[in-house]
Simulated assay, not measured.
Amino acid sequence: MKVTIGKSLELIEQAQAIRFQAFSVEQGIPNELDFDGLDSSSVHALVMDGNQAIATARLSINPDGSSVMARVAVLKAYRGKGIASQVVTALMKYAEQQGVDLIEIHAHSYLRNYYEKFGFEFIQDVEVVGGHQLIAMSYQSAT
């Protein structure tokens, strides 16, 4: 399956539909917390299975060369197949191509080891969102 990266309205709407299912429906996170106003200024990774959007993530690039990866989500039926890893890797490569030297992420605490496999380092516990403890992690490019 191919990862597409872009900013089109259609891509953003498909990403939001995945996030609604994964975050609001499954995890009980209020929908208004997901819609933070950053979608239109961010790039989105999207994975399709035929006509079905199945996975997404978002990268917001700051003027100082840092960035924030967020909203990594895979539909339940497609989890455990390495699709999230494809999305994360694709966005990391995209960030590098854009000259980004730092990627930050706020992830569920249980995903710490997962993101460490990509080279992210734990910084600290941060907020609790929808009953889920989030942690701040960062990845520093070697370039």
Rank of each mutant, 00 (worst) to 15 (best):
Q16K: 13
F20P: 04
F35D: 11
I83K: 02
R112K: 11
S141C: 11
G6P: 06
R112S: 08
M48F: 08
F20R: 15
T143F: 05
F118Q: 00
V47F: 04
N62G: 06
I5M: 10
A84K: 00
E26A: 13
S138A: 04
S66G: 14
E104K: 00
V128Q: 13
E10Y: 13
I83M: 01
M137Q: 09
A57P: 04
E116W: 04
M137N: 08
S66C: 08
M92K: 14
L59N: 09
G80V: 15
K117R: 15
A84D: 03
N62D: 11
R79P: 10
L59Y: 10
F122C: 00
L102T: 14
S141K: 08
D39H: 01
G80R: 12
K76E: 14
L33H: 07
G28K: 07
P30H: 07
A22H: 10
Q21P: 01
E104N: 00
D101A: 07
D34Q: 00
Q86R: 06
A142K: 14
Q97F: 04
S42Q: 10
G37M: 05
D39Y: 00
E32V: 09
T143D: 05
V88S: 00
S85D: 03
V47H: 03
I54R: 05
Q133P: 03
V72H: 09
V3M: 01
L75Y: 03
F35E: 10
L46W: 07
I123H: 08
L46V: 07
I135L: 12
H44P: 02
I105P: 02
Y115R: 09
Q133S: 06
E96I: 01
M48T: 05
K76M: 09
V72M: 09
F23T: 04
Q27P: 11
A45N: 02
I61V: 14
D125T: 03
G6A: 06
D101E: 10
Q97S: 15
V74H: 14
A45Y: 01
S66Y: 05
T89P: 01
L11A: 11
R19P: 11
A53F: 12
G131E: 10
S66I: 06
V129D: 03
D34M: 00
N62A: 11
H108G: 15
N62L: 09
D101W: 06
D49C: 09
Y114A: 12
E10L: 11
P30D: 13
G82V: 02
Q124L: 08
E121R: 12
G28S: 05
V3G: 00
L91V: 03
I123S: 12
K76W: 09
I18R: 11
S41T: 10
L59T: 08
S24T: 15
M48P: 04
E104P: 00
G131Y: 13
V128H: 13
L102Y: 09
M92I: 15
S85F: 04
